[in-house]
């Protein structure tokens, strides 16, 4: 299996290196990385021992996914790749569909892991809103697989760097003009990377209690995350902090869930956490299924006590 990997983010690309090597262990073949107009990332990946192709485009337009797909496609053809590994972040997912269409291949996004089945990889992803997990195999010669961020460990620095070579591509003029990039300011957290998470659910009913949850997070050295309605309906947080099917998939060492009912669309985002401790009054049946430890009680009275205990 000839595998190439690409992500605009070096940290995610290095996770793809790990995943790619694991697939090679199953199917054999070669693994190569590509970077697009990003020499810094090329060096970063080469240091991880992988062979890197620096794609040089004649008219780079990184916000134009059609161009991006064209660049990756030309590279895939030139390198006779069978499988293209991408990161399943937003940019990666958008690229995946267009690239698969260009290649006439099958595509899976949000793949969390894979196993070996009849000597080839079978990929797992959530379906039916997270109620079930599908295991799927690709039937096409060409395939595009986008992996959920942080599902695989980042590849470490190798003893010897991989080779770096240049690969020019020709692109048609871009139709998409990037007028401005606005960084997401103070709230640009990456809850996917947090070791410890305090997750706020709708069982926390007012801002005072929310402040207490934040205090607990500070005491524990945790990031605060939330369920979808807390961000979209109550607007207490930006969407960056949403855990779940349409939010982030997190695998912290410890997650403390406060007032989370445990609907399946949420639980898919926390399923892989190390330990899950929950405090909740509502819907015991669901949350008990999700948590390792559950304290049943009224958050209004429990929160002040927890604040005191954890700050001590």
């Amino acid at each position: 299996m000839n595998i190439i990997l690409y992500s605009e983010r070096p940290d995610l690309a290095s996770e793809l290196v790990t995943a790619g090597r694991a697939i090679m262990d199953i199917c054999g073949g070669a693994l190569q990385a590509l970077t697009i107009d990003d020499d810094e990332q090329a060096d970063f990946l080469a240091a991880r021992g992988v062979s890197v192709h620096r794609v040089r485009s004649d008219q780079p337009s990184p916000a134009d996914v059609a161009q991006l797909a064209s660049a990756v496609h030309q590279t895939a053809v030139a390198l006779e790749a069978d499988m293209i590994l991408l990161a399943s972040n937003r940019r990666g997912r958008e690229l995946a569909g267009r690239l698969a269409q260009k290649l006439g291949g099958g595509c899976l996004t949000d793949v969390g892991r894979f196993e070996v089945l009849d000597g080839r990889p079978a990929f797992s992803r959530n379906a039916l809103g997270g109620a079930v997990e599908d295991v799927r195999c690709m039937e096409t010669g060409k395939q595009v697989i986008a992996l959920t961020p942080h599902s695989f460990a980042a590849a470490g620095v190798a003893t010897g760097p991989g080779p770096v070579s240049d690969l020019p591509v020709r692109l048609s003029p871009s139709l998409v003009r990037l007028k401005e990039t606005i960084r997401k300011g103070a709230d640009a957290v990456d809850i996917e990377k947090a070791d410890i998470l305090v997750v706020v659910g709708q069982g926390i009913e007012n801002k005072e209690d929310l402040t207490k949850a934040a205090q607990i997070a500070r005491s524990l050295g945790a990031e605060v995350a939330c369920t979808k309605p807390v961000a979209t309906d109550r607007k207490w947080f930006s969407e960056e902090r949403i855990i779940g099917l349409s939010g982030k998939r997190c695998k912290p060492r410890l997650a403390l869930l406060l007032g989370v009912s445990g609907q399946v669309q949420f639980t898919v985002g926390i399923r892989d956490a190390g330990a899950i401790v929950a405090v909740n009054l509502d819907e015991k049946a669901n949350i008990a299924y999700v948590a390792d430890y559950l304290l049943v009680g009224d958050l209004k009275t429990l929160l002040p006590e927890l604040v005191k205990r954890f700050s001590a």
């Binding site: 009054l281 509502d282 819907e283 015991k284 049946a285 049943v296």
Partner: peptide, 13 residues
């Protein structure tokens, strides 16, 4: 129904 699901007695709903 909601109350019955939440309420526990001796550790059981």
């Amino acid at each position: 129904l909601r109350y019955a699901r939440e309420k526990t007695h001796r550790g059981e709903p």
